[in-house]
Amino acid sequence: MAGGGTTSDVRSLVSSLRSAYAATPVKLKIIDVYVLYALTTALVQVVYMGFVGSFPFNAFLSGVLSCVGTAVLAVCLRMQVNKENKEFRDIAPERAFADFVLCNVVLHLVIMNFLG
């Protein structure tokens, strides 16, 4: 495949991705922003660890895992509240959110415990 072809393909891919994503409900977009924020924080911490070293390993671990965990949980929530996803018809969004909150509370309790 020629280089020009690839770039054009990629360009068209990006545009189609953008258009497809534009159709996403705002509620899901909020979640996406949240996920993105969490992942960025995780990345920052990993880069920082690369510079400083992994000495307080528990702090590093809890810092990064809290971000990753948040992101993963948000993705789970996103799957459940996504109306296009037919798998979760019997889970109401309110229930999904309540579960999400519970899961997060547990996660952050553990993180707090592990941080120090």
Partner: peptide, 22 residues
């Protein structure tokens, strides 16, 4: 409360506040 670990603490706490705001 090791100095070097402050960014991690920050990360964890920002996640918590992020969770509330979200």
């Amino acid at each position: 409360f090791i100095k070097a670990a402050y960014p991690y603490y920050g990360g964890a706490f920002s996640m918590m506040t992020g969770f509330f705001i979200f």
